[in-house]
Design a protein around this nucleic acid. Structure first.
Length: 429
RNA sequence: GUGGGCGUAGCUCAGCUGGUAGAGCCCCGGAUUGUGAUUCCGGCCGUCGUGGGUUCGAAUCCCAUCGCUCACCCCA
């Protein structure tokens, strides 16, 4: 049924507007990230928001929750099945292969933008959400694992985020993981009577996730299950220990969590998550891992790779929880224009000032109104100064300059002198 | 997909056992005949989420439905 006629106009469920009052926090996050990535030698890549459905099925895994029930999939007018990207890695890997960027080359890239998953929205979980994503291709050793984690740690620190816990684990090679998975299925199948409904379902698709269960009645069976660490081969162990040594050396604290498995099939070796307990139930703020098999699996030349993604909405909310809201950007000058003669020349004067002061933020009052209401607006804008143009000033070709943040007498300036005086006062701090 | 809580003005909310909708904030104007505090006065603002039922009468009771939200699940 069409409910649009009886419901107020709303965005699609789980998709949010970022309002002018919130945008400062987004810009701060994105600009800090962009500057930091450049200092580590990572370059931006931009890829489509839509890809062929098969790309996500083959990379994320047919049996994962994301592919089975969370994708926005549709047919284009030509009959192709396309999907709104539920995560960034698949598209970036595809772009690497499509453009031949991995041919005897290493790549360090980052990407930011919206992702889409058809989930039931709740705190920290939306149908359209935004990630900042970092990937490195062609590096096999644990040094790049360490670099990527150091990069994430520095970014989180620079954003002012506190009290995060870094969880780490190694899944080993695809082969060792496969052997372990079979052992788990054997174990849990032998204890089927003790499994709850969720775990029985996972037994078919993703038995590793049974280890994650929060059901208290499950803890006993889980405690007796085989441990992944015991199935790691020697090279996997060495890789993981190498990573830990690098992290120890720079003093990054971590917790090795053998239960950390991640929900995407392509991960191998290192996986990690930065966790908070200050956002309700969606505690993962940044997470990622190595995916050495994915490039080859998608048809590229076999290339080791690793990456992580952080959730912008979650990070912004966490910053707000810990430090309060980001103040909005204020103009430098609020230009009060009152009276018919003033209105006739006000915009022209403002344009002249902008010619001479290209970096100064001048907000002109449009739409008339009393001096009182315009001054009130000037105050609320957060501007340091008000320029005051009434009919009497317009007649004499002068403009009033009033300091709004400190006690100081209002002065009158000839139009020709206004820009120079403003420049002087604004640089005085 | 499952469960809990909640839908009244742009925002935050009041409205008891049914009697026909209110406050504060915001915004505009005035007191202050051209200047951002406070105070005071006035003004603006409502399909009481939607549909149906009970009733002389429903924001209030009943049913359905939609939406929001939190948790499970999943994950950034």
């Amino acid at each position: 049924m069409d409910t649009s006629s009886i419901q107020p106009l709303q965005p699609p469920r789980g998709m949010n507007d970022v309002l002018p009052s919130q945008v400062a926090a987004w810009q701060r996050l994105e600009s800090i990230a962009r500057e930091l990535f450049a200092t580590y030698g990572y370059r931006e890549i931009r890829v489509p928001i839509v890809e062929h459905t098969a790309l996500f099925k083959r990379s994320i895994g047919e049996l994962t929750d994301i592919v089975q029930k969370e994708m926005f999939t549709f047919q284009d007018p030509g009959g192709d099945s396309l999907t709104l990207r539920p995560e960034a890695t698949a598209g970036i890997v595809r772009a690497m292969i499509s453009n031949g960027l991995l041919h005897n080359q290493k790549q360090r890239v980052w990407c930011a933008g919206p992702m889409f998953r058809y989930e039931k929205p709740q705190r920290g979980r939306f149908r359209q959400f935004h990630q900042i994503d970092v990937e490195a291709f062609g590096y096999a050793g644990p040094d790049i694992d360490a670099e990527l984690i150091m990069l994430s740690a520095r970014l989180l620190k620079r954003l002012g985020i506190e009290r995060l816990e870094l969880n780490l684990n190694s899944l080993g090679t695809l082969e060792s993981r496969k052997v372990y998975r079979e052992a788990l299925v054997r174990y849990f199948s032998a204890h089927k009577s003790k499994l709850d409904a969720d775990s029985l379902r996972r037994l078919e698709g993703n038995p590793l996730r049974i280890l994650d269960s929060k059901n208290p009645e499950m803890q006993e069976v889980i405690a007796g299950a085989p441990v992944l660490t015991e199935y790691l081969d020697e090279p996997s162990r060495q890789h993981f220990n190498g990573l830990l040594r690098h992290l120890d050396a720079v003093g990054i604290k971590y917790v090795v969590n053998p239960r950390l498995v991640r929900g995407l099939d392509y991960y191998t070796h290192t996986v990690f998550e930065w966790l908070t307990n200050e956002l309700g139930s969606q505690g993962a703020v940044c997470s990622g891992g190595r995916y050495d098999g994915l490039v080859a699996q998608l048809g590229g030349k076999s290339t080791p790779a690793i990456g992580w993604a952080l959730g912008e909405e979650r990070l912004i909310e966490l910053i707000e929880v810990q430090h309060g809201a980001q103040p909005q950007e204020a103009p430098d000058v609020y230009f009060v224009i009152s009276g018919t003669q003033a209105e006739a020349v006000g915009l022209t004067l403002a344009e002249r000032l902008r010619d001479e002061l290209p970096a100064v933020r001048i907000e002109t009052h449009c739409g008339g109104g009393s001096f009182k209401s315009q001054m009130k607006r000037a105050d609320q804008s957060g501007a340091r100064f008000a320029l005051v143009l009434g009919d009497s000033e317009a007649e004499r070709q002068v403009v009033g300059l009033k300091s709004l943040r400190i006690e100081a007498p209002q002065v009158e300036l000839a139009w020709a002198d206004a820009a120079a005086e403003l420049r002087k006062r604004l640089t005085e701090g």
